[in-house]
Design a protein around this nucleic acid. Structure first.
Lengths: 133, 133
DNA sequence: CCGAATCCTAAGCGATACTG
DNA sequence: CAGTATCGCTTAGGATTCGG
């Protein structure tokens, strides 16, 4: 065992670090998605809002890193379908395996396992409330 | 299977996201470390420099998240020893399991798997060169 | 020897508006 | 439908200095 026995792990972590990437990979592990369909799914399952800009960013990075592929049908209106590469499929299985350990840890830590909303989003919620009045 | 089958994974990822955390966990998986000893180890194995502030931050977060524990001997000069919790031990095994997949992915992507140095560090290297002249 | 305090920069994320 | 472009806020990480 060399000194660098964790470098592969580190690289992998870098590839999947990003607020929505795990969620995206796990979603695509079950079925392929079109762009807006995926956007809607992410919003629903995580009970918060992901912007199109960020979804595009994360998908592009995952594509660049060999986790997802996209197929564009040259139609109008456009149709683009995202799916996992073989290695992306394998990764999604590993991620789901980690879920049990993560839930276990969250329970020990008495942590809230749902998605966080940040300060800016709280401000916006406040603003929405005020705009109603 | 609920819609939230990846939330535990996401929580776990959040806990281990941080430039040095994987490296720290894997190191402590092999043996316990004192503070400066760990600092030196991280610098050596990653061929770059980790500041004491950041090491302290990451250790504190890992402690708060139930991955590491520290034991202070009340001596002068101080002696503090860091080690993994049981769940931290389990985590380190999972991380090492991911190493193969990560190396595999890096090879497919023809990516350089070593630690990156960032723009600021490049600037500092330049500065050092210039200061010699 | 083991940190805490301060200051700084770069990157990530989000809201919103616009386009082929 | 599937994205870009622009802007602003927040956070992570690093350099450096000080303290018990």
């Amino acid at each position: 065992m060399t000194n660098n026995f964790h470098m592969g792990t580190n690289y992998l972590l870098k590839v999947i670090t990003g607020k929505w990437k795990v969620s995206i990979i796990c979603a695509l592990g079950l079925k392929d998605y079109r762009y807006l369909e995926l956007l809607k799914y992410e919003n629903d399952v995580n009970h918060t809002k992901i912007s199109k800009k960020v979804l595009t960013e994360q998908l592009n990075q995952l594509e660049e890193d060999g986790i997802v592929t996209k197929k564009s049908y040259g139609t109008i209106p456009p149709k683009v379908v995202y799916s996992l590469t073989p290695i992306g499929q394998e990764l999604s299985k590993h991620l789901i395996n980690l879920n049990f350990l993560g839930e276990n840890l969250a329970q020990v830590n008495q942590a809230n396992i749902s998605f966080d909303i940040n300060a800016q989003q709280v401000k916006n919620l406040h603003k929405e409330e005020q705009d109603k009045n």
